[in-house]
Amino acid sequence: MKLLVVEDEQALAQGLKFNFEQEGYTVLTAEDGPTALNYFRDCYESDKDNVDLVVLDLMLPGMSGYEIAKEIRRIDEVVPILVLSARELSEDKAYAFDCGTDQYMTKPFALPELLSRVKNLLKRKSLVQPAPAPTKALPPLYHFGNVTVDFEAFEIEVDGERKSLTNLELRLLKYFIEHEGMVLTRSQILEDVWGEQSAFVTTRTIDNFVLRLRKLVESNPAEPVHIVSVRGAGYRFMPEEASE
């Protein structure tokens, strides 16, 4: 696993590098945004040596950590970004999350907690795999929970009540069903469901369609059990509610 540490305080950067390497990780360090982004792009374009996680300071020379996070998200939607910053205001944390980061730790920090968070973020990332082609055709009627999907009629039946679906709603629901249990990124969904139209669609559109589907198929859309969010990754379809 390869980590990219973006930190301008050299002593801290070297301390992080040492401790991460003791855990078995390969570590790159960068003191500023352009260097960090060059490292990240080079690894990403190699297609076999990607950065698996970014540890990011916010107060950096020339280019803020917020800007770096935004640029990284334009390149890679999935890679975990963990902020390590002296900024403690809730506004700073909220904006960091808006820029696409996954977790936020304030300095000074406890090393065991940092290592644990890195480990858990990497474990979550490993769940995200490219969506394979469907292995078999779905039947005309598909049942999950208290829902029956009629693919030919573009309808679903929920507790005896029939509801119509638009073409895109049905395509998105079918895509989730075909990839049951898999974590699907927004970029995968855009490419596979929207196809040639994806250049004109934003990830916010996907989120809105998911909200619409949840209102149709979930007993409680605010606490979905079938179309569930995976923070920092995307969505997963679960035909049955997970047991406690």
Score class of each variant (00 low, 15 high):
P34Q: 09
G234A: 15
A94F: 04
E240D: 08
F200M: 09
Y66G: 04
E77G: 13
V79A: 12
N208L: 03
Q129R: 13
E21C: 04
V201I: 13
L4R: 03
A137I: 04
V78K: 11
E7L: 05
M59R: 13
P108L: 08
E45L: 10
A110R: 12
P34E: 04
G62E: 07
E178D: 11
V230C: 14
Y235D: 12
L213I: 08
Y142L: 13
F109C: 14
D92Q: 06
S85K: 04
L115H: 12
V118A: 03
I227Q: 00
P112C: 08
L114H: 03
F200V: 11
V147I: 13
P134C: 10
C43P: 03
Y66D: 05
E77R: 10
Y66F: 07
L53Q: 00
T26S: 15
Q14L: 12
R87L: 04
E77L: 10
N208C: 04
A131P: 09
T135I: 10
V27G: 13
L53T: 14
Y44S: 11
V210W: 05
N220P: 05
V54R: 01
F151D: 09
T166P: 01
G24A: 12
K2G: 09
F144L: 06
G65R: 14
I68G: 10
E169K: 08
P140K: 12
